[in-house]
Structure formats: structure tokens, C-alpha cells
């Protein structure tokens, strides 16, 4: 179980401080699928990076399975079974997709397992195994390899930061299936940052973050209609998930 308690994160800005995250608290039970959504620049990725230990909060606590992990390093967070798929994954010159997946797994990963993970994210596995994770991969390909690295790990909590960004429509459909499978099969908890309604449909719970605060949170059934209603009001047409008349 993940407990985020009164989490705040400030940065120095123009001689003052800028609050990126302001007193955020929530709890995620084991096996639950949480989608964090909200406007760009609202602090979603920062929350993910705080939970992974990449950034250290200015105040508040992060408790994972009863243990206070607030001050622990990224490496220690990883060893406790927390994984994070970056919004903008780095590229590695000279490293093949297969070796990156093996590093994620922790030892040499069998070819059929590599292929399975790559297929799940919509990449033709044989074509990609020995490709390098460098500038020769497109943004969308890189994002999919990044998602595959999390699949290769044994995790208690998997965090995906806008996994759908840069991914074409066909692959997106496959990706949704993959996340759907993940939410059904595994007992891990998943936090997924997304703007996509079809991904929100998979959620058990949704949190809306804006200006560093939780604007609303609750079950998918409560939050999704509100969000789609907002969209309808602003744009003057119905989102697909809105109730049919």
C-alpha cells in the first residue's frame, strides 16, 4: 500500500519559492489502478518523480508498505519494487533494446520474454531486439521500449508517465489492451499519468491535479463523468464516454 501524506515540493524561483506540489495526500491500496490526470504543468510528473525518489519533497511523507521511504534514494525505491516509466525517456548510445530489457529485469532476459514484452507494446520484436536505444528510434518507439522495461521488472508499484504520448492510433489500441491486462492479471498497483479517456476507463480511481493540488479524487464512476462534462461544456460537444442520450 502507498500512502502519500501532506506532500509538498518547492523550488527556488526569482528570489522566492515556487510551490510545485502543495500539500497532496492520497492512499493507493494494493492491486489498484490509479490514473492521475489534470492540465499540463499541474504537477503530475513531479508527484511521480517524488514517489520514485528522483526528487525529494520539501515537506510530507511517502509510506510504502508501512515503511517511510521519503528520504531513501532512487536505487532503494527501485529495490523495494517501485518502477517508473519516464515521460521523456533518455536514449543510450550503444545499448540494444535487449540489453536494456535485461538490465531492467536484473539479469539476462530470455529472447522469448523480450519478444513478449515488445509485442505487448506494439513493436515487432525481432526487428527491435538488436536495435540500439539511440537517436535511431523515433519518440514513439522509445516510449514503447520504456513501457516494456517496466513489464520486464517485478514490481509492487508501477508508475507510467503519459505512456500514450507520441504513440500512433494503432499502437495506442494495443497499449490500452496491455494496460487492461495489467490491471486484471497482476496484484501490483499501477499509477498512470494520462489525459486519455480510454486509459481513464481502466482506472479504479482517478485523481485530478491542478496547480499542485488535488482538485478532485474518487472512483472512476464519480470522477470521469465530471471530467467529461467539463470538456463538453468548454468545447460544446460530447466526449465519447459521456452518457448516450
Amino acid at each position: 500500500m502507498l500512502e502519500v501524506k501532506n506532500l509538498s515540493f518547492d523550488v527556488a524561483s526569482n528570489g522566492g519559492t515556487l510551490e510545485i506540489i502543495d500539500d497532496v495526500s492520497f492512499t493507493l491500496d494494493d492491486g489498484k489502478f490509479l490514473v492521475i490526470t489534470g492540465p499540463n504543468g499541474g504537477g503530475k510528473s513531479t508527484i511521480a518523480r517524488l514517489i520514485m525518489g528522483i526528487e525529494k519533497p520539501t515537506a510530507g511523507q511517502i509510506i510504502y508498505n508501512g515503511k517511510d521511504i521519503t528520504a531513501l534514494s532512487v536505487t532503494e525505491h527501485a529495490k523495494l519494487g517501485i518502477g517508473y516509466a519516464f515521460q521523456h525517456p533518455p536514449r543510450f548510445k550503444g545499448m540494444t533494446v535487449r540489453s536494456l530489457l535485461s538490465l531492467a529485469y536484473g539479469s539476462d532476459l530470455a529472447e522469448d520474454k523480450c519478444c513478449e514484452y515488445l509485442t505487448n507494446v506494439g513493436l515487432c520484436s525481432m526487428e527491435y531486439l538488436n536495435r540500439e536505444v539511440d537517436a535511431s528510434l523515433s519518440g514513439g518507439e522509445l516510449k514503447r521500449v520504456e513501457i516494456a522495461t517496466l513489464m520486464a521488472r517485478k514490481l509492487g508499484l508501477a508508475i507510467f508517465d503519459e505512456p500514450e504520448a507520441g504513440i500512433d492510433l494503432w499502437s495506442f489500441k494495443m497499449l490500452v489492451e496491455t494496460f487492461k491486462q495489467m490491471s486484471q492479471d497482476k496484484h501490483d498497483s499501477v499509477i498512470l499519468i494520462s489525459h486519455q479517456e480510454r486509459i481513464m476507463q481502466l482506472a479504479d480511481e482517478i485523481i485530478v491535479i491542478a496547480q499542485g493540488k488535488i482538485r478532485s479524487s474518487g472512483s472512476k464512476e464519480e470522477i470521469l463523468p465530471q471530467l467529461l462534462g467539463e470538456f463538453d461544456d468548454v468545447c460544446g460537444f460530447k466526449g465519447k464516454g459521456a452518457k448516450e442520450e
Binding site: T75, P90, F92
Partner: peptide, 22 residues
Amino acid sequence: IKLQTFGMSEAEAEQVIIKGFL
């Protein structure tokens, strides 16, 4: 940081990056 999220220490991550690069 990416390699540390796999559970490697910073020094191990550095070694892996250099080895891959060369």
C-alpha cells in the same frame, strides 16, 4: 537516474553506460 530506477547504484549505472558506449 533511469538505470537507478532499475535498482543500480550510481556507480554501477555509470559503468553500464560506459560499457555500452564503448
